[in-house]
Design a binder for these strands. Structure first.
Lengths: 245, 245
DNA sequence: ATTGACATCCTGTATATACATGTTTATGCT
DNA sequence: AGCATAAACATGTATATACAGGATGTCAAT
């Protein structure tokens, strides 16, 4: 888990956080280097120390910095050059950051009644309609990932092929009145299905990495279930965890 | 990422956090149920609201509760019945929580000079000695996980077979003067090695899940590198991520 | 030259307060 | 009874203050 929302304008501590993240990720703040002290940051942003500390604590929790009592905050190099499927980052954001040549192909898009499995994962009755989106993700002209998205139709009223080819997340963030709040991922390794063989460029790999993604709104209602099926040689997941003392 | 250290005595907000975690995990606080309000918690723990909020924010970040403005904090059922390899939780804590029949077998334990790969992962020179511990983890008499630990010997002076059969983490937490601060995990899927075939009960699985674990001290020095190799059918990883708005 | 005392800077924890904003409940008017 | 308003309650953000404790540099005494 690493990357989160980037919007935040009237919020002082989030703007400080986002600006520092940007400076660290862009390399303007180098690994090992010392951030301005909390007191200096209060002057730079004309705010109070507690507000600065909120921003710094977010940075620490997400692996950007290490705080040392009596010394200061130092930039970690833990997050560099990784390929996280982690957090709430979408495929589009990911590929943009990595700058790789990638393509999204919409295989199918339809409103339908969920099958038993999907209804169970989404925790709804089989009569409640859902959108089903099936897409393949390609890097360098190889279909590497098969994404099967399911959205509750009462929450996402409209969906078009154009939106699915672009970024569904961006669309939801802008158009949905209820904002996305948190997500749970479950990673397992399974045997490939017929569909995997059919839709992915499968160089004879006998297994597939399945990332089940459950996305919740702020009132904790589950509105999206996605199965992301990765060719094992291209899969990579990074996790950062901090210990409380 | 989900589980963190449990120690904290003179620390008010950490004791509140740990007690609430305990109540949620034990089921005394049920999913969907409402926690006492921040004001009520200030009275219960005879402390200030900001201190209570620190505890509640930790709970929210780790997926235990959902905070709703104007309403209160509600217990999530996101973390129940999972098998996280996530966070800094050790194998022993995991199995204890799951209550499964498990066994750890120490294959080898020796002080040595690191090979090229390990030295690179630990970011040390090949002349700096390390402890190498190779262990298998069994569930229901099947060897499922192969753990290859490497510790910087200048930081971990002594290590015995008994410690390795028990919990190295517990030993380090108690004996090491410098406390563990954070860890990074990288999950990939690879082809099994000779060693995997030899030491694991491998029912013909053609791939293996490799979890590379980098553990850091509070001064951000990397002191442990562990490769945890999991039989794919038994592997499961859970991640929780929150979006900032 | 080494040590020890002290001042200074830095982060960690805790408290009190103020105001904004969303939710629920009670009130009172029509 | 119905409805709008107000009060009470809940969390979100921001500020100011206090004290503890680690890190570091200075300066004087030895």
């Amino acid at each position: 888990m690493v990357q989160k929302g980037l919007d935040a304008m009237d919020n002082i501590y989030l703007t400080i956080y986002n600006q520092l993240v940007q400076q660290i990720e862009s390399g303007r703040l180098r690994p090992q280097s010392k951030l301005p002290s909390e007191y200096e940051l209060t002057k730079m942003y004309d705010t109070s120390r507690e507000t600065v500390r909120k921003a710094l604590n977010l940075l620490a929790q997400n692996g950007y910095i290490q705080k040392v009592k009596g010394k200061g905050s130092f930039v970690l190099n833990v997050n560099q050059m990784e390929f996280p499927v982690s957090g709430l980052v979408s495929f589009k954001e990911l590929t943009q950051r990595l700058g790789k040549e990638s393509r999204t192909k919409v295989i199918s898009l339809k409103a339908m009644a969920p099958d038993e499995s999907v209804a169970a994962h989404l925790n709804i009755s089989p009569s409640q309609p859902v959108w089903q989106v099936i897409r393949t993700r390609s890097f360098q002209d190889e279909a590497i990932i098969l994404d099967k998205d399911h959205f509750r139709q009462d929450i996402v009223p409209e969906l078009t092929t154009e939106i699915c080819e672009d970024s569904i997340y961006e669309y939801l963030e802008r158009r949905l009145d209820k904002p996305i709040s948190f997500a749970k991922k479950v990673i397992t390794v399974e045997e490939p299905s017929e569909e995997d063989w059919e839709l992915l460029d499968f160089d004879g790999y006998p297994m597939i990495v399945v990332v089940k993604n459950y996305v919740y709104l702020e009132d904790a209602t589950l509105f999206q279930y996605t199965e992301s099926r990765h060719r094992p040689d291209k899969f990579r997941f990074v996790d950062f965890a901090r210990r409380y003392h």
